[in-house]
Design a protein around this nucleic acid. Structure first.
Lengths: 190, 190, 190, 190
DNA sequence: CATGAATGAGGCTTCATTCAT
DNA sequence: CATGAATGAAGCCTCATTCAT
């Protein structure tokens, strides 16, 4: 029965892989559940053994992406050591795995940035806690707003970055870092 | 026959108004052409007299939005006088009408930011020419890249700005300006 | 434009005819909307131009059947002259057109008898008003109960009657009349 | 292997219990075999070990209901002593256990009354033999017809009876008895 | 040129049934 | 015999587009 569960997990993974690829290619609305099932090598009925409806697939995909993202970031630095880093270094430590992640998971760019989808929320929270660690005196509202803006900037540029061929990609990543650094270094008021 | 053309232009305008409203409410995919026709007070058949298919409506809407946007910006400053402005002032002169425009035309936020749609391209070109005016010595590639990034930042935040209720909206606009100022003020290299 | 409406009414009629036949053959659940459309000589999409969903077709069919039934009964006697009739005659005047009606509209037997469907309610109300006319002193609850029971008896036997070939059919109609006469002639209490 | 068979019988019973409950809740068509299996605490595959298809479950359930019904009736009186009873007493002796049975087995009301399902046939035969015992001189056709009609009347009203809350239920049972007594007491001809 | 009925492919989802384990 | 994942046809309904009037 442990085999059963392992098999189930694998099939869920296949579904999410297929959905990720198709969402990346055509977006959520234009991706049919039958197409996801076909790409995952199963029948439509099987897909519905694992997910109750199309939205649930997107949700689960968001969850998985978020988890993988957390893992990737955890490998890049630990939150406690963050307060002392110079801003450009911090930005690089955050952005680089993020870019790698998105290049590796092109499906992410469709889900991230859509409010209410858990990935977006999760990433924003994570960035918020980083900001909080660096600026403990900042009001909660400002932390939330700044992290939201930062995440949206990243999300906005990520599409171009992922789509760009390699020489240009690096340049765009530079630009993203410049934008974030410039944004976060600029005093909030005035 | 001049009357004919005037009538046609008006009907096209009605279609675009309807499409704009519906795209804003539900997005492109979830807006049906029949709904657009109904909102525009005409039959589906009539709609197809003016547009060959759904995408053409979105394209025409993008064109019209771009034209209106140009007009709005032209009223805010003239390109030739831009070189001397301090950066924060320039940003405000660009961003404020843009925000006003998007608040007034909520449909724009669905179309802007989608690559290949003419609005996006047009706005990027326009920003590029502003950059060029301020930094004549910058390589073409850098101008293009910087303007693309700037436009994407604006597009990314515009959604939240339009959606936010007024006290928060102003705060988000501040953040957008901070982001742009910070980005453009930060030296490209290093 | 009057032609348009006439055409629409006709197509609605065709849909109801088709639904009636199929409901009679297989019942509501086993009748597909695509089958109704096909039998009505139109595409599934056209059907949905006239009805928002499957249940609405059944409802409209019930309404139409009820109206036709009212007409048939109105031709058989007028309510005001009913009080003086001997019970067997009254029963015949009610039952005969009903039987003719059901033989002519086999779809009716699926809809009648299902509580909450308007035909059933309508017929019960009508029978109730007949009872009320004959026995003005009867409590409301008894009128309702008696008419409900009478209608259910008719509905229950109608299936066999419609299904039976002619010599047997007449015999069953006799039985139905006997049942109703016996029921209504028997004093309620004791 | 006796254990085997005992186990099998028990599982069949569980399936029929589950089916009975679900048929009562939603009807035959709207009850899925998977739901039956789940309610019976087994897998779909196991269910199909005992029944070749969905209809066979309904058939077996009808058989079982009929057997239980026979048992209930046998406890209420014996056929040989029936000839001498006054009609109202006979009706009560038949109807009361029937009502109790249906209240106890709500699933029965979906199956009874559907021609060709064995429960209906069985009940009709039983009533026929009662009639035959009381009126030995009656032609076979009349016996069959009368018992069919009587059973259909019972079946028709049973739905309302089972569905009604208690004060109303008793009243409806009274009505049912009145209907049967009236029907059977009324001379067949003229 | 307007109309709106008509089309039919296709989307999401369910479910009776089978089969590998 | 049990399990439950797998199947795939089919059901209800939508919608971009066309065409007769």
């Amino acid at each position: 029965m442990v085999r059963r569960q392992a098999r189930g997990r694998q099939r869920i993974g296949e579904i999410l892989d297929a959905a990720s690829a198709l969402f990346a290619e055509a977006g959520y609305d234009r991706t049919s559940t039958n197409a996801i099932a076909a790409r995952a090598g199963m029948s439509p009925g099987s897909l519905y053994q694992y997910f109750p409806n199309k939205q649930a697939i997107a949700d689960a995909l968001s969850e998985r992406l978020l988890a993988e993202l957390r893992e990737a970031h955890a490998a890049s630095f630990d939150d406690t050591a963050v307060a002392g880093l110079p801003l450009p270094d911090l930005v690089s430590r955050v952005v680089d795995p993020l870019v790698f992640f998105h290049v590796t998971h092109p499906g992410a760019k469709v889900l991230i940035g859509e409010k209410g989808q858990s990935l977006h929320t999760g990433v924003t929270d994570r960035v918020g806690s980083l900001l909080r660690a660096r600026s403990p005196e900042l009001p909660d509202d400002d932390v939330r707003r700044t992290s939201t803006v930062a995440v949206q900037i990243v999300a906005a540029l990520m599409g171009s970055i992922v789509a760009a061929p390699e020489p240009e990609r690096a340049a765009l990543v530079q630009e993203l870092k410049r934008a974030l650094t410039g944004y976060l270094a600029t005093p909030a008021d005035r």
